[in-house]
């Protein structure tokens, strides 16, 4: 079921497709404005109780795609639903322009795509991630705290050669 590494992800971006596949100089026009969904994204934390969904050890790890990697067509508004915070202190850029029906539209469109990341009013996504947690496992910490200091220092002072001989 999951053996589809060759399967390209669909973006349904016709203009990009025409360019990628070199199929003519058609300037594609969208007549039905795409209604991008307003999503409130869930935080990316592992499930606590999901016995049925637990993967076999052979399965590759799967990651929920980060928001930034979600493909967005040029004509679509930024992924709505993600709460837009105040713009950071950056150099303001030109006001976003509408795509005109001009013969040069192709060029403008391409430039717009390239410039989209450096816009003056980029999105700041407030993902409401949970606060950071300590990574060290408590059991190890406890163990470390229980060891007498001389033993800790002596282990630190071992030479690399000693360690090799030990291992």
């Amino acid at each position: 079921m999951n053996d589809m590494p060759d399967q390209p992800k669909s973006s349904d971006d016709v203009q990009q497709l025409l360019r990628d596949l070199s199929i003519g100089g058609l300037q594609y026009r969208e007549f039905a404005k795409p209604n991008a969904a307003h999503l409130r994204l869930a935080p990316n934390r592992p499930a606590v109780e999901a016995p049925a969904a637990s993967p076999p050890s052979s399965a590759p790890p799967l990651q929920t795609p980060p928001l930034a990697s979600l493909p967005q067509p040029a004509a679509a508004p930024p992924l709505p639903g993600t709460e837009v915070g105040p713009a950071p202190a950056r150099r303001p850029a030109a006001t976003p322009r509408a795509v005109h029906e001009s013969p040069l539209n192709f060029t403008f469109e391409r430039l717009r795509r390239q410039a989209i990341a450096s816009r003056a009013t980029p999105l700041q996504l407030d993902l409401k991630l949970p606060s950071r947690r300590r990574v060290t496992l408590p059991s190890h910490l406890d163990q470390l705290q229980k060891r007498p200091l001389p033993e800790v220092f002596s282990s630190l002072c071992r030479t690399a050669g000693d360690q090799r001989s030990i291992s």
Partner: peptide
Amino acid sequence: ESLALQPGQRLQVLLMPQRN
């Protein structure tokens, strides 16, 4: 990864969220 689901559970699916 972060979603626990069970057979029979009701949910909602959105296809192509950038257009729909």
